[in-house]
């Protein structure tokens, strides 16, 4: 296990002092490679934004990166589609990804902390089971999950998408690694000696140290849930409960006799990417903290 355990942990033992480094002159070639990589990643995103300004006619007739004239009409059509279904899908995505990833982060943190900071019978078995869970393809589980959800009468409900997304073996695994690295045993022991209960030690002492790691797990879970397609696709049959991914897919996969609504799907994609990018930009600052801040402040 050492390969995985130490993947993120050097951070704790070795504080990184970026500002202390002597500023060197930027060289052209390395910077150029980096910027080239950034451009490679941004060009298709830029295309979504450009294409969302094209009217249905322009989409297939004008140069790929030429802006169109239909942005406002497209937005109006998008928000008017099916009595405002797009807005509903956005709210649904926010519920699934937002509530799901908050709960998932909490559950994962508690589990990861327990696996990292306690020795108890069955710990290794639990950990190995969870590692095994990381390796399972989601598609394998989607249909059995659907059938089981049906048995407890929840298929098609919000719960059917929300509940399975709370359990994240990868999140638990990450939290365990973070907890090993960021929460020194001395601090935990000190809290216990002060007479703090286990719960209070976790909440008041360990949790603040785990926060940067939790932000990362939250972010990964949020993006994962926001982009999740298969689970809601299998579970839901009422378009009013669709998240954005399934909703946008339904615009593209119409029955025969109905054209795919490319324009709506593209403008919808553009609108749905924007909040995610905003969140990434906002959460970026926490990466700067890395784990060191959490580990050292303690």
């Amino acid at each position: 296990m050492s390969a995985l355990d130490s993947a993120v942990s050097p951070v704790v033992t070795a504080p990184h002092r970026a500002p202390a480094r002597p500023p060197r002159q930027a060289k052209v070639v390395p910077t150029a490679i980096l910027v080239l990589g950034a451009v490679y990643c941004l060009v298709p995103v830029a295309w979504v934004l450009v294409a969302s300004s094209k009217s249905p006619g322009e989409l297939f007739s004008t140069f790929t990166f030429a802006p169109g004239t239909g942005l406002l009409d497209n937005l109006r059509a998008l928000f008017a589609y099916g009595d405002g279904q797009f807005l509903l899908w956005s709210l649904n995505s926010l519920v699934y990804a937002g509530i799901g990833s908050v709960l998932s982060t909490l559950v994962s943190t508690m589990a990861g902390y327990a696996l990292a900071k306690y020795r108890f019978p069955g710990r290794d078995a639990v950990f190995l089971a969870i590692l095994g869970g990381v390796l399972l393809p989601g598609i394998t589980l989607a249909i059995p999950q659907y059938l089981l959800m049906t048995k407890i009468g929840l298929a098609g409900s919000y719960w059917s998408v929300l509940l399975p997304s709370i359990i994240s073996p990868f999140g638990i695994y990450l939290c365990r690694v973070y907890a090993l690295a960021a929460v020194p045993d001395e601090v935990v022991e000190a809290a216990r000696i002060d007479g703090a209960s286990e719960w209070r030690t976790f909440r008041a002492v360990a949790l603040p140290m785990l926060l940067p790691g939790m932000v990362t797990v939250f972010m990964l879970q949020f993006v994962g849930a926001w982009n999740n397609f298969l689970l809601p696709f299998v579970m839901l049959s009422d378009e009013r409960r669709y998240p954005l991914t399934v909703g946008l897919y339904s615009l593209l996969a119409k029955g025969s006799g109905e054209p795919a609504l490319y324009t709506l799907a593209i403008v919808g994609a553009a609108v749905s990417i924007v909040p995610l990018i905003a969140m990434l930009l906002f959460l970026q600052r926490f990466w700067r903290m890395d784990l060191i801040s959490g580990g050292l402040k303690g």
């Binding site: 990643c41 993006v223 593209l252």
Partner: peptide
């Protein structure tokens, strides 16, 4: 860094 991470946020269908 942000630019290279952004595609991760784009749903696979799109």
């Amino acid at each position: 860094r942000t630019a290279i991470f952004i595609p991760y946020a784009v749903p696979g269908v799109i």
